[in-house]
Amino acid sequence: MPKVATGLDVLLKDVDLQKRFKGNIALLCHNASIAYDYSHAALRFKELFGSRFIKIFGPQHGFATDVQDNMIESNHFIHPHFNIPVYSLYSETRTPTDEMLENIDHFFIDLQDVGCRMYTYIYTLTLLLEKCAGKDIDIIVLDRPNPINGIDLEGNILEHEFKSFIGFHPLPVRHGLTLGEVALLHQKMWTRSKANLQVIPMKNWQREMYFEDTKLPWVLPSPNLSRPESTLTFPGAVLFEGTMLSEGRGTTQPLEIVGHPKIEPFGLFADYLEETIKNSGLNGLALRPITFLPTFQKHSDKVCGGFQIHITDKKIFKPWRTGQFLLRELYKHLGSEFEWKAPPYEYNYDHKPIDIINGSDKLRHWVEQNESLEMLDSFEALHEFEKIAKEIRLY
């Protein structure tokens, strides 16, 4: 199977395509915006466009992808090497201002998404599209792989009441789209005024691919997704951000491990969880009891007991369903020691973080009422979403 060429790679190798962009250039990018030769997109843009490359923009976690958590903003600055402004779209604003957009003719987006609704880069993109509707600015998405494949859908559809910057559109948790396809779906379904949008597709990417299949190098797109394996556990492990259990931030394997200071890991497994998960119908995973010490965030410098989620068969592993199951079981196991995290979360001060994360309060009620796994499946809604998504698929 040939190596995938990202949208950036396609642009870099197509001189005729490069010649179409004759005006001033801006680039929204981050740490993972690299070419086939590991060079950063900003360096290559400087080579291609010279003095016409006038502005850089960064999403959540910053242009350098060095900012850890939600509600920690990045500053604007003048880049010391490129000597051009770097604007943060996770700052006092999530939407570029008119001043930021001045003198831009072509605005490129090169971001590595992770295929999950609770990941903010797709909303940075769609807010940019909204802002540029009616403006004489070309928006060009340099497409990249969905690392957890472009076929499988999972989870509930976002309910409008729980809309936030980690859930802005009626998407399922695992949406099966690339960044470029999200942009196309936005223009088709979620906006009244369209932008001048172009997507530069990848070459050789197939929908059934996981990131490892692309033969591309993995560079972390946010500080806590250092391995491509983490993107597949993320849609389930991210639920624990809505609780006072640690999801492994402050360790070397965040969003693959879960724990709490009151859990004795071997007792949890031997007495309870091992048999329960065997009877759950969940497949494609193994849970391994561990002890870990977060160095920051929840339970910093406190020994936690818990487990690591190992994926044994990614084709049948259901991350969101696994996450909801584990959340329910740990709610029962910890009893009075279990706590839902309190607001605010992602600038929402009204709803519990778990409800914002899941885009619904149904999961929280389901956990508290100890209902069966089947209660949260929404196959009909996923089927309807799939029909819409097929109309804009590029691959």
Rank of each mutant, 00 (worst) to 15 (best):
P265D: 02
P344M: 06
L334A: 02
L293C: 09
H351D: 13
E264S: 03
T322H: 04
F307Q: 03
G267P: 00
P261I: 00
G323Y: 06
K318T: 09
S300E: 12
P265T: 04
F269R: 03
L282W: 00
E337V: 06
E274P: 05
L287C: 04
S336A: 12
A286D: 03
Y345I: 13
F307D: 01
L285Y: 03
L334G: 11
L326S: 02
E264Q: 06
K262S: 13
T312S: 08
K302F: 05
L285I: 00
G305R: 03
Y345V: 13
K341C: 10
K341V: 08
K278M: 12
L285F: 06
P261Q: 02
D271T: 08
Q297T: 11
E329L: 07
Q308K: 14
Y331Q: 06
Y347M: 12
A286I: 08
I316H: 11
R321Y: 11
K318I: 07
P343W: 08
H299C: 01
T312Q: 02
Q297M: 04
G335T: 01
V303R: 14
L330D: 10
R321V: 12
P265K: 01
L330M: 08
E339Y: 14
D313H: 03
K341A: 15
D313I: 03
K298A: 03
K278N: 11
E264N: 11
I277K: 04
C304G: 01
K302D: 09
R328T: 06
P353D: 05
D350G: 00
K341P: 06
N283F: 06
K318N: 11
T312H: 07
Y345C: 12
V303T: 12
H333F: 15
T312C: 10
N348T: 07
N279M: 14
F296W: 10
F266Y: 13
I309Y: 02
T276W: 07
E274A: 15
D301E: 13
